[in-house]
Design a binder for these strands. Sequence first.
DNA 1: TCTGGGGTCCTAGGACCC
DNA 2: TCTGGGGTCCTAGGACCC
Length: 426
Amino acid sequence: MNTGRSIALIDVNNFYASCERVFNPKLAGIPLAILSNNDGCVIARSAELKAMGIKMGMPWFQLKENAEREGIMAMSSNYALYQDMSNRVMEIIGQFAPFQEVYSIDESFLDLSGQRRCHTDIALDLRARIKQFTGLPVCVGMGPSKTLAKLANHVAKKQSQYGGALDLHELSPTALEDLLSSIECRDIWGIGSRLAPRLQELGISNALQLRQADPEFIRQQFSVVMQKTVLELQGQACIELEEVAPPKQEIISSRSFGTRVQDLQNLEESVSLYMATAAEKLRRQASYAGALRVFIMTSPFGDGPKYANSKVISLPSPTDDTRQLIGVALWLLGKLYRPGFDYLKAGVGLLEIMPAAGQQTDMFGFSAGNEKSARLMNTLDAVNRRMGKGKLRLASQGYKAPWAMKQEHKSNSYTTSWNEVVVIKN
DNA sequence: TCTGGGGTCCTAGGACCC
DNA sequence: TCTGGGGTCCTAGGACCC
């Protein structure tokens, strides 16, 4: 047994909701919603809330009215807490096998190929250890490809008889076919709400039917992406594990405003702040950007006048200097701005990202200015790491930020801030 | 009154060149 | 009147993911 490729997908159940519960036992057993920035809509749900039929992305204001009567609680999202809990979980998972891909904040692939112990036993150990050290519940799915591991994980989460861990290798061929025929296409990794109906038109409505489809035909009808999905369902691993996260090709920073913004000055402040955030991320991965994008938009909802626009511009030479990036972004914003609209959101993106080492600058770029800039940016980042995000900033970022987002139900940063750490008293 | 944010990959079609 | 064919590069848009 245990020959050939075996990939596990470990996924924390209801991750954000589970994190909140670890630190606040009063939240146990009740329908709990985690809200997006600005407390806009529901981005994570406890099992109880899912059972009530509340959908992902539902606007909170629609839910709020009856929340109290139905016993629904809501929390603003607390990314510092979730990221820290995620780091702990990922570290434990990495102890179980040498090849791990951290796929998202709450999911990790792990290569179990060649491990002699029964893989289901390994998975059950993993669950127990994560529960013991972090308090978080996880499920594990295993199969010969990433797509099948995802699918097994989905089943392990829905069907309690597997005890939170399912290895597709252990199913008989007929049992596997039964299982696959019970999975709708929409629930397969890589198939979303647009493609599922198109598959349906071709008479393909479940995972078994898609697995039996001709990969070449699927490629013609759709694309190489879905062709890979078919092959992966057949047990052929086409999507490799990526141990080291590749550097980002694009870095985006954007936010909806807490209140609508009309004037250019407030837009300038917000764009400056988002660009400062993006530039810091850029430097953290030791890269330069060759181009940038700025966008602004009004709300797409309601009857008010609508305007949305974005512009990209190439930089004269690649840079990671916040001052330069903000300067260009504000110039671009000036081109985009139209008075007379209630703006909802602005954002920036850094594009054409390349490694900082060995970059050519423009013909004037090799002067002492570059080194000075690097020193200044290092200092800026160091101060902000030590004293807190945004303590040191450019004047264009403003001070009052009347447009800043709302977060009315935020939990403490229990694990990352000494002021908010949990103290147990007798 | 109130509707998230941050990513990736693929394809079609236009511009342009010879 | 007749109005090729092939290649490359870029961009916008569509689709997906969490």
